[in-house]
Amino acid sequence: MEENTPKTRRTLIGSILLWVIVPLVLGSLTALLISRPVIGIITLRDSIYAYTAENLIKQIEYARENENIAAVVLVLESPGGTVVHTEAIYLELLALRKEKPLVVSIDGMAASGAYYLTAAADYAFAKPTSMVGNIGVIGMLPDAPIIFENIISTGPYKLWGSPRDTYMRQIETIKQAFYEVVRGGRGERLKAKTDVVLSGQIWPATTAYQLGLIDELGSQTQAVEKAAEMAGVRNYKTQDLSIFASSSTNAPYGFFAQSENGTLLPYPKEAGIYLLYIPPMQAGQK
């Protein structure tokens, strides 16, 4: 039997420090390197065009590259916008989704191009009276090509881009692509038939849910919880990623037309092809 001598006590304390306390402290310190997971919030409350697209893409890139961000909730309140910028955001969202869950939370409206983005998500929430859909393309036919006495060009469509007729057909191909995005994104969850999807209707979310265009009626909080669940995280925190957005393009005006008295009108000021929802009377007015 060993004697309870000071030496023995020191040896015991030393052993406890070495084999218990030190690993525990080291483990605790190392554990601190595991940071609290973050659910990133990206918000689009505008139409989709160069300025908003650049802002969104920067936030998406940040979310993809930052390991702390476990999942992203995209909050949408948008009538859509230009085709190319919608596609740009959509492709970035797909890249993000390969690594992290993406959940959409629709506020007032996710129409046309904004629904295009919704189709990129793993899961989509909307409020019961959110407006969802308006899947399709709008555009204005350009004038029939003519030639001018004092303007010389090197081909029949150098001045006009394409025949008037082709322009109309290009819109049709964009529509086909839009449908493929919806069909591919929603998969088996899509219950509506093709002609219903492509009818261009905008539905209240209750109907959109029945058609399989969204997954659930619920709040942004539920969307965050769903994103966390899909990412397998808990005790997370949320972070508004808009602080990481900064656009090199000009200030966010110039997309919508303006009336003579300065009122902003709900349709673009330039002719072109858009994935955009324009309220009925203004559509006719245009």
């Binding site: 525990l24 190392t30 554990a31 992290k100 899909m230 397998g232 995280v233």
Partner: peptide, 26 residues
């Protein structure tokens, strides 16, 4: 014992934030 004690806080913190059963398959 030292290894277990070292890993214990790490595992605890990890489990505090992550559900090991969850898998995300995009």
């Amino acid at each position: 014992l030292a290894l277990v004690l070292f890993l214990l806080p790490i595992a605890g913190r990890y489990l505090m934030y992550h559900d090991p059963r969850a898998t995300y398959e995009p």
